[in-house]
Amino acid sequence: MNALEITGLCKTYRGKRQKIVKALSSLDLTIAPGEIFGFLGPNGAGKSTTIKILMGLIQPTGGTAKIFGTPVINSASRQRLGYLPENPSFLDFMTAREYLAFVGRAFSMHKSDVKKETDRVLELLALEGAANRAIRHYSKGMIQRLGLAQVLLHDPDIYILDEPMSGLDPIGRALVKDILRDLKSRGKTVFFSTHITSDVEIICDRVGIIVNGNLMAVDHVQSILQSGIEGYVIQLVRDKMVTEEVFVEKERLKSFISDLSASDVEIERIEPKRKDIEKFFLDIVAKGEYVAVE
């Protein structure tokens, strides 16, 4: 069973003067259990709309979405799910500890487990010092950390995170990356939206790029990086002194190396020069072409 299954998902709004705005056009996507999926797209591309439909916050105009086989319109679909909204906001009259206890009860966790897990996630997210302070006195970064804490509390099987790095300082961002790597190692499924391509490159198994409500590309991060090799930068050494660096195109690498073997020049280092995910993303957005490599 797929962790997430989206079929023909559409969403249209009525804008000003009854103008129809297409926020999502026939989105098809499946995410397998244990996969870390990055959902990339420029502002207004439809990332948050997709996530809100998955969370039942807005209704699709057409199509279906299922989480572990349960349609998202059923609140039971969220029983095995942890959700972090974009710019989250929590019941701010509560303290972090009270809010986490509230979340634990919502997931029918045992009282002793709630206490144990609350202590664990508060420590993990470095919020122990503020655990008994009302959330209304938290900074933006602390609220984001609390959002991650409540997501991790009940150890769900799938995580849907809308811009999880938003509002975090470099220490917080590094922490989130570590958490995502840990989830990956424990076989959890993560679906997260982001603007930051380097995060996708480091963490994700697959990436989907959405532009103007259309899913333009779905591919494995490794194959994007592999196919993106444009050539190699080769460092040459003559008489044990670094002499020069040359760029060799991908197709010419073999012949270049064989030519060198006849000379007295040694190869010190060969580095692939590749398009990164950012370049790939920008190309897709610019071309507006659909690429699907599963």
Binding site: M55, S75, P85, P88, S89, F107
Partner: peptide, 17 residues
Amino acid sequence: EKRYTSSLLGLPVSRAT
């Protein structure tokens, strides 16, 4: 208005409840 609904309804809570 305060967007509490997005965090509360992200839990297994139906709108009727």
